[in-house]
């Protein structure tokens, strides 16, 4: 089927609920309304109010109760309506979901797929455009995924549903309906922790994910550049070997994400390249991200999110240093 990311995710959730009777969806407005982006559309009618559950408006309890469900035999798929509201549940994620397995030496597991829309570019209100992947990755114990296209979105969500781990599944709102792609009808998995080489070339490597994959591809194509573009897909744990193998080939690396530059995932990736491949490099590793302050009001967002001009500028800086 040719479909956008919303429909691919909806289809994946449908298959997950069909496959596992202990799987449920819970969150704000996920029921009759089908979620504010309609990712859960139709699932309430198909599976009923016991499996597609409208919760009270309280994020900490959405995650806290999901943890309780997960440790007692269920496989919850909580939705936080926007990643900017996940901070209310941060304690449950950092203090509990991330560490139940380690604090019980594996006795208690938290199989849970926490979905939330991330990133901007769609003119929303404040707090609706956050990119918190580095916050969640830094904790350890949480798998952090972010797809960049409909095919990956479905396969990664299905993979997440088969894992015995808490998975933070970040869905870029801008990509929900941006483009369509051929997506298989049935079950398939996209592996966790494996980056995808979406463009092959010789001169430099762009390491990116989520909303920045497509503009990176466009800049490379429009300017006839020869570059590897690596779509990480899973941010934690990082596919370090894919990163290093590309950088060793090209000798130049640009790490690109929408999240603020400072202390972002890019810093982690740049540091790993520096530690392990310094002598393969022809120039210092470059980073490009949103500016190092919180996401602005929507009227200013186009000046904050890295655009193609800034990507091209960073590539030139990379090639000329």
């Amino acid at each position: 089927m040719i479909t956008n990311m919303v429909t691919a995710l909806n289809n994946a959730l449908d298959l997950c609920l069909e496959e596992n009777s202990k799987a449920i969806i819970l969150g704000e407005d996920v029921g009759k309304d089908g979620g504010v982006f309609r990712v859960t559309d139709g699932l309430f009618d198909k599976y009923g109010p016991n499996r597609v559950i409208d919760t009270p408006l309280a994020e900490s309890s959405i995650i806290g109760t999901s943890i309780g469900m997960a440790l007692s035999g269920m496989h919850p798929f909580p939705e936080i309506q926007f990643a900017g509201f996940s901070y209310l549940a941060f304690n449950q994620l950092a203090a509990h979901a991330a560490r139940y397995r380690s604090r019980t030496r594996g006795n208690i597991k938290i199989p849970m797929v926490l979905r939330m829309p991330v990133s901007g570019g769609v003119k929303t209100l404040e707090h609706h455009s956050e990119s918190p992947e580095a916050l969640f990755s830094h904790i350890g114990g949480l798998v952090v995924m972010e797809p960049s296209n409909p095919y990956d979105a479905k396969g990664m969500l299905i993979k997440a549903s088969h894992m015995d781990d808490p998975v933070i599944f970040l869905e870029p709102t801008k990509l929900y309906r941006l483009f369509k792609q051929e997506v298989p009808e049935g079950m398939y998995e996209v592996p966790a922790g494996k980056a995808n080489l979406v463009n092959e070339g010789d001169d430099f490597t762009i390491i990116t994910y989520g909303t920045m994959v497509r503009p990176a591809q466009e800049v490379v194509k429009e300017n006839n550049l020869s570059a590897d573009i690596l779509d990480l897909r899973t941010i934690n744990p990082l596919d370090e070997s894919a990163i290093l193998s590309s950088v060793r080939k090209t000798g130049r690396a640009l790490v690109l994400h929408e999240a603020p530059l400072s202390f972002g995932a890019g810093a982690e990736i740049a540091a790993r390249i520096g530690e392990k491949s310094l002598y393969d490099l022809k120039s210092p590793v470059m980073r490009l991200g949103g500016f190092s302050f919180p996401y602005p009001f929507s009227g200013d967002e186009d000046y904050w999110v890295p655009n193609k001009n800034r990507i091209l500028y960073s590539i030139k800086k990379l090639m000329n240093s």
Binding site: S60, S61, I63, G64, T65, S66, I67, G68, M69, A70, L71, S72, G73, M74, P76, N91, Q92, A95, H96, R103, T104, R105, G106, N107, I108
Partner: peptide, 30 residues
């Protein structure tokens, strides 16, 4: 805490208050 689940227990919760929502989740699960 490597065998608490079989006794229908969780480990002692240290982060004050965070146990309540988890317990509600377990109750939902039951």
């Amino acid at each position: 805490y490597s065998s608490v689940l079989q006794k229908h227990l969780t480990p002692e919760v240290i982060a004050v208050g965070s146990q309540y929502t988890q317990a509600a989740g377990i109750a939902f699960s039951m």
